[in-house]
């Protein structure tokens, strides 16, 4: 009995010490990690709206469940972060619309489809197609990468629905 108590106490003490150490490290790193996250999002938003200086996350309603976040570039437009199911894995991308409803930026954040086929929607070719589109005339699917691009097109359609509720263009 005495043995069990001493073992338990030793283990409890070790765990408590470990907890204290981690709490210390966490209190130092938590604010830096938070800043890194915000900086990473800001960097991608800057690519879509290079001249915008102020970004703010806005509330929105989305029935499709595809749109994750919406960021407003003050006076310039909106960037929407969309997640869709691709061929192999989920595809996350950002699409930006200016206040006239023209697509101004498209950036695939994460994709894991077949190299040379589905992965092509991450290339400049598809980005140029998307940037040429607008709210009234959305982009078409990409020949040779039908599954992945059809998923993205569906995501863009969902983004347009959300965009229409936010901006009057």
């Amino acid at each position: 009995m005495k043995k069990i108590i001493s073992l338990t106490l030793f283990l409890a003490l070790a765990s408590a010490l470990a907890g204290a150490v981690l709490a210390g490290v966490n209190s130092i790193t938590a604010p830096i990690i938070e800043e890194q996250k915000i900086a990473a999002v800001k960097a991608t938003l800057k690519e879509i709206f290079p001249s915008a200086t102020e970004f703010a996350e806005v509330k929105f309603e989305d029935a499709s469940g595809k749109v994750n976040n919406v960021y407003e570039a003050k006076g310039q437009g909106f960037a929407l972060k969309v997640t869709v199911q691709g061929y192999k894995d989920i595809i996350t991308f950002l699409i930006g619309y200016d206040l006239n409803g023209e697509a101004v930026g498209f950036k695939v954040v994460s994709i894991n489809d077949t190299p040379g086929i589905g992965m092509r929607i991450g290339d400049q070719e598809f980005a140029d197609l998307v940037i040429g589109s607008s709210v009234p005339t959305p982009v078409d699917t990409l020949a040779g990468a039908t599954v992945s691009s059809a998923a993205v097109v569906k995501g863009i359609e969902a983004a347009i629905v959300v965009f229409k509720t936010l901006a009057e263009y």
């Binding site: 283990l11 765990s15 150490v21 490290v25 130092i28 990690i33």
Partner: peptide, 21 residues
Amino acid sequence: PVYIIVIATLTKAIELLIKAF
């Protein structure tokens, strides 16, 4: 169990530091 506590604590601490820096 004591070794695991030591290793887990160190790993988590390194993970947090890498995430930050």
